[in-house]
Computed example of a mutant assay.
Amino acid sequence: MGKVGRFACILTPMLLTLSSLICFIIVMLGQTPWKGNNAPTTALGRDLYFFKADTSNMRLDPKLISSELPNLELDFDLINALQGSASSKQLKDFYQVGLFSYCEGDKDNSTGKETITYCSARKFQFHFDPMAVWQLNNTNVQNVLGDKFDDGMNAYAKAAGWMNWAFVITLVLTVVEFVVGFFAIFSRWGSLVTTIISTAQTVFAVAAAATATAIYGTLTGIFKTVLEPYKIDAFMGSRMLSVLWLAVAFSIASGFFWLISVCCCSGKSSHKKMVVEKTPYTYERVASPAFGGQQGHQMQSSSQWPSSKAAPAGPSNTAYEPYRERV
C-alpha cells in the first residue's frame, strides 16, 4: 500500500503540470501559420490572440468626423496616409497579434464573418509594428501621431523581447518539471528536486503572463487614444488571456502539491515485522544425545543460579558423578 499511496500522491501534481504544459503550448500556437505565410492558421489558433485591431468600420471623411466630434483637431496627414493605404489595399479589415506572429484578413460587415488571408512568418522576439505593416514608415504619420505613440510602441517592442524569452523558458521548465516528476514516485528526494524546478517555472510563468497582460493592455490603450476617433477599434483577446492565466493557475497548484509530496506519502509500508528478542541471560543449550538429552536441561537449570551461590544438592540423573567424596 505504501507505493500505491505514493503514486496517488504524485499523480495530482503530474496532471496539473501536464495541464499547464498544454495551456502554454496553446498560447504559443495562437496566430501561428502551419503551411506557409499565406495559409490561414488553425481554427484554434485563429481565435486566440493577445491584441486585435479592427479597421473594417474605419471612417476617413473629415466632414463626418467633425460633425460627430466637433472639438477634435483633425490630422489631415494621418487621414491622407490611411486613405492611401486603404485604397492600395494594404490596409486590411482586421489584424490579430499572437506571441510569435500576426494574422490579417477581410471581414464581411453584413454577416460579420472574418476570413484570414495572410499570417506572418514565426519570429522570435516578435512585436507588431502597425507603421511597417501599413507601410507608413516613410510618411508624416509618425510625426502626426506624436511622441506618446512612439514612446508606447518602443516600450512595447522592448518588453515583447523579454516576454518571448520568458515564455520559452517557462515552456522548457514545464517540460523538465514533468519529466523529473516521474522520479518523485520513488523517493522524496525526487519530489524535492521537482519542487525546486516547479518554483522556478511558476516564477517565469507569472512574469510572462503579467508582462503579456501589461504590454498588450498598453498597446490597446495607445490605439484607442490615437485612432479611436477614426473608428479603428482595438481590444485585447479575452480567450488568450484566459488560457494563459489558467496555465499559471495550474503551475501554482502543481508547485503546491509537489511541496506536499516532499513532506507526506513516503512510500514505505506502515506494516512492520515483529521481532521477538530473548530475555537476557537465558542461554539455551542444545541437549546432547550422549547423555540422553538431559545434560542441556541440567546445565540450563544450573545456569539460572548466580555464580556466587552453589546449586541446591539433589540426586544426579547422569550416568556418572564427576566428583565423589571419599570417607
Rank of each mutant, 00 (worst) to 15 (best):
D151N: 14
M153I: 13
M153C: 03
M153A: 11
M153P: 01
N154A: 12
N154V: 10
A155G: 09
Y156L: 11
Y156V: 07
K158P: 02
K158Y: 12
K158C: 08
A159E: 12
A160W: 05
W162E: 06
N164K: 01
N164T: 15
W165N: 10
W165M: 09
A166W: 02
V168H: 05
V168D: 02
V168F: 15
I169D: 02
I169V: 15
L171Y: 12
L171S: 14
L171E: 06
L173V: 13
L173A: 14
V175K: 01
E177W: 13
E177G: 13
F178P: 05
V180G: 00
V180F: 14
V180T: 10
G181N: 08
F182H: 04
F182V: 09
F182A: 11
F182M: 06
A184D: 03
I185K: 05
I185M: 12
I185N: 13
I185W: 13
I185E: 04
F186G: 04
S187L: 06
S187C: 11
R188Q: 13
R188K: 11
G190Q: 04
G190S: 09
G190W: 09
S191R: 02
V193F: 15
T195S: 12
I197Y: 04
I197H: 00
I197W: 06
I197G: 00
I197L: 13
S198L: 01
S198D: 03
T199W: 12
A200Q: 05
A200K: 04
V203N: 04
A205Q: 02
V206H: 05
V206Y: 10
V206R: 01
A207M: 05
A207T: 05
A208P: 01
A208Y: 03
A209K: 06
A210D: 09
T211N: 10
T211G: 09
T211A: 12
A212T: 01
T213G: 03
I215N: 00
G217F: 08
G217Y: 06
T218E: 09
L219W: 08
L219Q: 02
L219D: 01
T220M: 07
G221D: 11
I222Y: 07
F223V: 14
K224N: 14
K224E: 13
K224G: 07
T225N: 04
T225E: 05
V226A: 08
V226E: 11
V226Y: 07
L227A: 04
E228W: 03
P229F: 11
P229A: 09
Y230Q: 08
Y230A: 13
K231P: 03
K231T: 07
K231W: 04
D233T: 12
D233M: 13
A234N: 07
A234R: 00
A234S: 14
A234T: 10
A234V: 11
F235N: 09
F235L: 10
F235W: 13
M236F: 01
M236S: 10
M236C: 01
G237C: 02
S238G: 12
S238A: 14
S238K: 10
R239K: 13
R239N: 14
R239F: 07
M240Y: 14
M240P: 03
L241I: 15
L241F: 15
S242W: 06
S242G: 07
S242Y: 03
L244R: 00
L244G: 00
L244F: 02
W245G: 08
L246W: 05
L246H: 00
